[in-house]
């Protein structure tokens, strides 16, 4: 039974693989169309010109409906949104780039038509502040771990030293209406909890 762990993991892996295969194999044709970006379609109005359907969807996905609060342009059933999606297709077919098309709508409807803020400018702070906070946090963690390994050998055993109360038991301990043993009670439980905590994990 030594290698049961490996076998169990193997079985899980096979199950996961089988599941994923069954889920995606039939859909893979669709998936390729999605990421390959090779599909083209004719613009109804301008026969002959073609546009990249995936790109048109991607642009629509990055915009909001200008009327409904917080609704993605691609999902919105309103006529104005259908027109906007048509405009995207027409402009793509005319050879315009994604950024120019988005800028066109931003100029017309204002910043709120984008559903994600741009990376640059003041709105870019939406992206950079959390990233900076994460990097700062990581720096603090690394400093915490590396900066203080001075004399690890003198580190006391946790259950004895570190679980001692930060302050002597406050006299309020005896207040709560219990008999005089309240403090002993609390201390006993603490000792037990500490002993259990240190023996708990392996």
């Amino acid at each position: 039974m030594r290698h049961f762990g490996a076998r169990a993991a193997g079985a899980l892996g096979v199950a996961v693989i089988a599941m994923a295969l069954a889920a995606f194999a039939p859909a893979s044709a669709f998936a390729q169309a999605d990421d390959g970006g090779a599909t083209t379609a004719a613009v109804p109005a301008q026969t002959g010109a073609t546009y990249d359907a995936a790109e048109a969807d991607a642009i629509a996905r990055s915009l909001n409906c200008p009327i409904c609060e917080g609704r993605n342009l691609i999902d919105c059933p309103l006529p104005v949104c259908a027109e906007m999606r048509g405009e995207i297709r027409t402009r793509l077919a005319a050879g315009e780039h994604r950024s120019a098309i988005i800028q066109y709508f931003v100029d017309y409807y204002g910043e709120r038509v984008r559903n994600t803020p741009p990376l640059s400018g003041l709105s870019g702070l939406a992206w950079w502040v959390p990233l900076a906070a994460l990097i700062g946090g990581a720096a603090v963690v690394v400093r915490l771990v590396n900066g203080r390994t001075a004399n690890p050998t003198t580190t006391p055993r946790p259950a004895d030293a570190d679980m001692t109360p930060g302050a002597p038991l406050s006299s309020t301990a005896a207040v709560a209406g219990s008999p005089g043993g309240a403090v002993d009670y609390a201390a006993a439980i603490e000792r037990l909890a500490a002993a259990r905590a240190s023996g708990d994990d392996e």
Binding site: N72, E111, R114
Partner: peptide, 20 residues
């Protein structure tokens, strides 16, 4: 915050959160 500071209304949609 953006509306207070710059008076500009903007929206932050799902793709922001998905990416971050």
């Amino acid at each position: 915050i953006s509306e207070w500071v710059t008076g500009q209304k903007l929206t932050i949609g799902p793709s922001y959160f998905n990416r971050l």
